[in-house]
Amino acid sequence: MNTPTTQAALGQAAIAPPPPTSTVTLKINGVERHLQLAPWTSLLDALREYLDLTGTKKGCDHGQCGACTVLVDGKRINSCLTLAVMQEGADITTVEGLGTEDNLHPLQQAFVDHDAFQCGYCTPGQICSAVGLLTEGKAKTTAEIREMMSGNLCRCGAYTNIVSAIEEVLHSKNSELRR
């Protein structure tokens, strides 16, 4: 009855040495950062493990949750599914670049006011995604905001308040609020 089997996720190929590192320059929140990175480092891991910018979260590492959302050249993307080396020359904004605890970005303030989170782990991704949504300017109605925020899972189920927070900023008469 007992049958032998072998496990090796990468198969039985000959073992290649780890890839060499090179200097990678990333522009993050307006600051140029120089890193020694191998090509297999994702933008997400570069932020979290090499730059201590841990505001960007890892919720799945496979583009299935949106917790790692950052803005690249103003557009929201999943930082887990791009390599850091691919982003040389791009302008990257993380949650740390939006506001500080003493000077919150209007969306950050709206998230606090509407209690648009509980555990807080998906929150930076939600906020970066919402910044992207406002820049895109496509979503206008509640249903459209819901659809266009559907790339960001929230296991605490804070969706109702997330949508309210975004609506407040979207409909704010003060355009400065939507900076």
Partner: peptide, 22 residues
């Protein structure tokens, strides 16, 4: 080849795609 990367990097993390060069 890698372009957007959204599928190939996902599959590389699962060890399903194993390119020696991107």
């Amino acid at each position: 080849f890698i372009a957007g990367g959204t599928n190939i990097l996902d599959l590389m993390k699962e060890n399903v795609e194993r390119p020696s060069r991107l």
